[in-house]
């Protein structure tokens, strides 16, 4: 009888959902974040937006299977969640990179050749605007004025601003990020290996 109850299921059901759009594996920690949030926070459907924030904070985007999982947890229909996600510009359903490169296109940056910065980043990463690299390390987008006009042309990497950019400094920043990511990956891989040994 135990499996018939509609209480919190142990196993995230999301990965088995029909029409799972994204062919890529979704980090199962995302489902656990949802489970934890729902069990810890009182209340019901009004928790939707904060919960979506929490998930996007972790995954960088809101894959559809996760949206359906969230819907199930909050007693909403999937399209109700999708409607909210599609309404707010902040939420995104396309994966973003570990490093989100946001080139400022505000007036000051624009007249200071922001387009060149954009082009250089495109060449370096091999992706177009709005895209993400295959290894999910970088995503590239243009944003409106970030309020750093004195630093024009400027670039945000996640929450960090870089200013007075030239193609050369842009290359430096890009290489730095790449090597940081490599180091991170190596140490994470080492941990995983040591875990496997147990």
């Amino acid at each position: 009888m135990a499996e018939m109850r509609n209480e919190v299921t142990e196993e995230p059901a999301g990965s088995g959902l029909i029409d799972a759009q994204a062919p890529e594996e979704i980090d199962s920690e995302a489902y656990r974040i949802v489970d934890r949030y729902v069990s810890e926070q009182p209340g019901g459907q009004e928790q939707l937006i904060p919960l979506l924030h929490r998930v996007q904070e972790y995954l960088g985007y809101l894959p559809f299977p996760v949206q359906e999982y969230v819907a199930g947890k909050l007693g909403l229909s999937p399209v109700e969640v999708y409607a909210v996600v599609s309404f707010y510009h902040f939420f995104t359903t396309t994966p973003r990179g570990r490093y989100q490169l946001k080139v400022c296109m505000g007036t000051a940056c624009f007249v200071n050749n922001a387009q060149t910065i954009c082009d250089v980043l495109g060449d370096l990463s091999g992706i177009e605007l709005g895209g993400v690299t295959e290894d999910r390390l970088f995503s590239l987008e243009q944003v409106r004025c970030i309020g750093a006009c004195g630093l024009a042309p400027a670039l945000m990497v996640n929450d960090e601003a870089h200013g007075h950019l030239t193609p050369i400094t842009v290359r430096k920043i890009f290489r730095k990020l790449k090597s940081a990511a490599r180091k991170e990956k190596n140490s994470a891989g080492g941990e995983a290996d040591s875990e496997n040994k147990h």
Binding site: L76, S77, V79, E80, Y82, A83, S86, F87
Partner: peptide
């Protein structure tokens, strides 16, 4: 009580 359809996008 079904909510099969929703108002998507903006």
């Amino acid at each position: 009580g079904v909510a099969e359809i929703g108002l998507v996008s903006r």
